[in-house]
């Protein structure tokens, strides 16, 4: 395992050496931050405007219509928006957990067992990272249609459980975090192999698996193509596809734009909240390859 120094610790160490602030560097960072926050600030301001203010008042000037917009959104199609948000949470939550578990046991096996075909299996799974989703989308739809699974929750959930990248991360993490000696000790004590994984390996891999979970959660939350292709009934849509259909109707009914705007704002809040709460578990050093197995 690597020692992870906190940003502040390093910053203090280095600030001790030289104290002058680089205003050029700081300004560039601030500009970058402003650029990234601009659309978010806009959607916050725009969500408070009623339909006509949206096109007449200055962009960032707040309005007074937030609650009105919210109740309009909730009454659209019997509150279908909340169904979409709920669906997204199911797809991303259940998909993320299952993906982390499958990645976890696969990564653990690839790191902790020696068996014929280990490298071949790992390389084939890993090559999946390079397969462009474009090759998969159309045939996945046709194959699922043959077994009658299109336009069901399964059509969106099942294809996103397998994550080559997640398996890769879990393997690296298991190699670094689960010592061979601990596994062997448990084995000598007579514990079964699955029990060793569930009671010894899995708990040690939790930080890595939280990273895999977050990664896949975001990937599913952000995935538009798959549900867009697979689903046709709007009560199964995730929020991304739902808002997209609203936006398309907005071209003829501009009043729907206010729904799209407040809907967009509400849909990004949970993800930002999740990030802020799970931030400390988000092991970015895994993703950048800084933890070596």
């Amino acid at each position: 395992m690597t020692t992870v120094l906190h940003d502040q610790d390093l910053a203090t160490v280095r600030a001790g050496a030289r104290k002058r602030t680089s205003w050029l560097g700081s300004s560039i960072l601030i500009l970058g931050a402003v650029y990234c926050l601009l659309p978010i600030a806009w959607v916050v301001a725009a969500s408070t405007k009623n339909g006509s203010d949206l096109f007449t008042t200055f962009t960032f000037a707040p309005g007074t219509g937030f609650l009105e917009n919210l109740s309009d959104l909730s009454s659209t199609g019997d509150g279908i928006y909340w169904t979409w948000l709920f669906n997204t949470a199911i797809y991303a939550g259940v998909g993320g957990v299952l993906s982390a578990l499958v990645s976890g046991i696969s990564g653990y096996t690839l790191a902790k067992y020696r068996f014929a075909g280990r490298n071949a299996i790992f390389n084939v799974l890993l090559a999946g990272v390079l397969v462009p989703g474009i090759t998969l989308a159309v045939p996945q739809y046709l194959l699922l249609a043959k077994v009658g699974l299109t336009d069901t929750y399964w059509a969106v959930l099942l294809p996103q459980i397998i994550s080559p990248y997640g398996i890769y991360l879990a393997r690296i993490y298991a190699a670094a975090a689960v010592p061979d000696t601990v596994v062997e000790a448990a084995r000598t004590d007579g514990a079964g192999e699955f029990r060793i994984f569930a009671r010894v390996g899995l708990p040690m891999m939790v930080p890595g698996l939280v990273t895999v979970f977050l990664f896949q959660f975001v990937a599913i939350w952000n995935n538009f193509l798959l549900p867009f292709i697979m689903l046709s009934s709007d009560d199964k849509f995730p929020v991304t596809v739902g808002l997209f259909t609203l936006l398309n109707q907005g071209a003829t009914v501009p009043a729907l734009y206010s729904h799209v705007i407040i809907g967009s704002l509400l849909s990004i809040i949970p993800l930002i909240a999740l990030f802020l709460t799970l931030q400390r578990y988000w092991r970015t050093d895994l993703i950048s390859g800084a933890v070596k197995g």
Partner: peptide
Amino acid sequence: LPYAVPGVI
């Protein structure tokens, strides 16, 4: 922060 915002949004 934009990483948490889906491409559609």
